[in-house]
Design a protein around this nucleic acid. Sequence first.
DNA 1: TCCCCACGACTTTCTCGCTT
DNA 2: AAGCGAGAAAGTCGTGGGGA
Length: 335
Amino acid sequence: MADLDPGRYRDSDALALKWFQAGGRTIFVRPQDWEPTTSVGTLAGALLRDQGRTRDMAVLASLGQHHYLTTGHAEALFFRSARGAQRRMRKLEEWRLVTRWHQMEPRSVGGWRRHPDVFLLTARGATVLAHYLRSDPRPLIKRAFSAFQYAFHLDHALGTNGFFASLVQASRELPNQGLYHWLGDDGIRSAFQEHDPELSPDGFGRYLTADAEIGFHLEWDSGTERPQRLRAKARAALAAVRGHVLWVAPWPARELTIRSALERESSGRVAGFHTTHAGLLCAHGPLGPVWRPLEQDDRRPLSALPGRARGPLQIEDCLGKPGWWERRPGGTEGA
DNA sequence: TCCCCACGACTTTCTCGCTT
DNA sequence: AAGCGAGAAAGTCGTGGGGA
């Protein structure tokens, strides 16, 4: 069994998922205030001249959709090297389109471990993005401000985002697979309006294989929710979700707790629930044989889950593939 | 001495506009 | 269309800070 502490994994581990977060322990060093200024002024000219503006806008769009991206997440989605991601994010920061937080995680034995910096959209970034997308900037600014001001679930968000980023990273070199859609919780909540939006899953993904489209919702568990609430979430998913729901537990025993809650709630009904835990994800990666269906013992890879026949979506347009943002300016949620 | 991350310096590759 | 050059972007390597 792999060690559960993500801090123990090294770059040399073939499938190390270095940005998986340990839940709820990290502290964030952030600027005092959110910049309320929305003037874009001289920036417009610099951006228009900039060769990488399409990618920059896709970075901003992804920040608008998922709120918190680390240097590692940005690298997985948009860059081929960590240095490239660092350089570009620094530039966006200098243009005051994004703001940066440092993360430090206290170690159990004392001391601190530095994690990659976290980037958030500024008001200026939201305005520039809205201008680029020809949309109303106000909702974008409002959501970006909320992400800055009310970052209560930041660890949880980074865990969810880290899962999808690791999926992008793991599939980017595969010629006939890829993650096409990644919807954040904002995008999913609208689909849950008829139910309790508080019970909506944490993310939605559409994974393409050679002959199938596999849609799945993600539940990223922090290990703090009571079984009662787990069952409520299971009920909501049974009512509102067609397709798979993947539950990720922080440790093996917690996975068993989740499984018993799910099995109790879904007994006798068809449920596409699968579970895993962070140790397996770190050891095998998100594409490894880690997903265990309810009332079964075997674990299977994501690509082996049943899906529907491939539609017009193209593998080469999947997230992380070369230049994907050129063809999908709407970010990870767009067509 | 090692780890992790950010970043500076230098080199190489790519992109774009201009000229012929 | 082809060739050229300037500047931007990307690749690589080493360093530094903060920690064990």
